[in-house]
Design a protein around this nucleic acid. Structure first.
Lengths: 235, 235
DNA sequence: GTCCCTTTGTGAACCGGTGCACAAAGCGGG
DNA sequence: CCCGCTTTGTGCACCGGTTCACAAAGGGAC
């Protein structure tokens, strides 16, 4: 899933830590809304669903922002994590592929709130080009390069069919984009220096199925299934 | 061939391996379509975007299904991985929350194809209850327990608003479901034995933003940003 | 059967991440 | 100012997972 995502060196934040910071940030925002001034590592850890030692170690990578005997200042910590994640600036995001999923993403308010702004919706289907979705005009994929440059798009979300994903990825990379969130069920080949994150619904379900099957097996006493190739199989 | 069966397969396939099996399966299906009979670990690894040593070790956890000097039989390996993942049986999935995302998931053909069948769509909003989506009637959330039992639902996809997710999770767990795929941006508290997988769009974007920022910093010569709390901040 | 070539399966070193346990640090009370 | 309580920050042991490198195994040629 994570490719070439840095050897976090300069400031050296471990990848696993980076992946949890958004979780802490969300928990902290909830606390700020409830007007809590400070929070202990224990309480924040519970809210974020991790253990407190891990949380303290994670935060220690950002700096020493806690007060022993007291805890962390909620607002201050929100600011520090936001800054570290780069959410104090505004990121222009383009969504390519305005099918069901693309539409859902465009309308999903959750990420627009924090630092991200959907700057463009693009699609190849003339049927949907021109539609107005979430306050934006759907533009034709031919405009891809122009739109990326003119609007300073730095993150692209791929919600295209699998067959189109690699082609679009090549184009956005050529246009200078180095961060891609891919929803298409394909392994994208990308050059060094381009960060890809992948969200794959079908893989998640398959992992669940594996564990579900295992649980079921355990219940039925773990009867050994046939190991051999069945006589007649046609796939 | 059956000699090693016990040791590797018997107990515990590493979690990291399980997470990659669907990737291999997808690559193999592509090869089967192109009528390839056998494939080497090297070729399959490239297609799946991993290195070949890892792929061989992963497959070795299922058993010894390759032939030295030749490679793996494509169809046979598809069958073995499918069986291991539990895709040879049919899983009934319920989607709770038929907003934009729920609709997108319902219409997403990708996972229906392989072992998964959407058995129900549920929502609390009387406005959408009764709608017909992807060939299914949207039912009222009050029917949750009945539907789960009657249709043998074993996997639930949560696509509800964040505020409703925990409540729905509690109910489906009480109804006997132990596998949940959660799209709501909340940390769910669940009892031991329940498997939760989480997909969080906003977290993925934030991780990308972190790396994007880092890349930008590096280009501009890594100018040190102010570390201090700005004078006037109101969030 | 023997030799050579290819490719698997795996022992072992290595690496990043986790969790424990505790010393250091801050705060409030007397 | 000192004491005792709380909570952070971290050294260290541990663990799962990755990667390397190679012996073992199979196939084909002759």
């Amino acid at each position: 899933m994570i490719r070439r995502l840095s050897q976090a060196r300069e400031r050296g934040i471990p990848e696993a830590t980076v992946a949890r910071l958004p979780l802490y940030l969300r928990a902290l925002n909830g606390m700020a809304e409830r007007a809590l001034a400070t929070v202990s590592s224990e309480d924040l850890a519970v809210a974020a669903g991790v253990n407190s030692a891990k949380l303290r170690k994670d935060l220690s990578h950002l700096g020493s922002y806690g007060t022993r005997g007291v805890g962390y200042d909620v607002e201050y910590l929100i600011y520090q994590i936001s800054r570290e994640l780069g959410l104090t600036q505004d990121w222009a995001v383009a969504i390519v592929g305005v099918g069901n999923l693309g539409r859902a993403l465009a309308n999903y308010g959750g990420f627009v709130s924090r630092g991200f702004r959907i700057a463009a919706l693009l699609d190849a289907d003339p049927e949907v080009v021109g539609d107005r979705i979430a306050g934006l005009n759907v533009e034709h994929i031919d405009e891809l390069e122009t739109v990326i440059e003119r609007r300073g798009v730095s993150i692209v979300v791929l919600a295209t069919p699998a067959a189109a994903a690699q082609r679009v990825a090549d184009r956005v990379i050529a246009a200078g984009v180095t961060s891609i969130l891919n929803f298409a069920p394909v392994v994208l080949a990308v050059p060094e220096g381009v960060d890809i994150r992948k969200v794959d619904l079908s893989i998640e379900l398959q992992i669940l199925a594996f564990h579900e099957q295992r649980k079921a097996d355990r219940m039925t006493g773990g009867t050994a299934m046939a190991e051999e190739w069945p006589e007649a199989v046609d796939l």
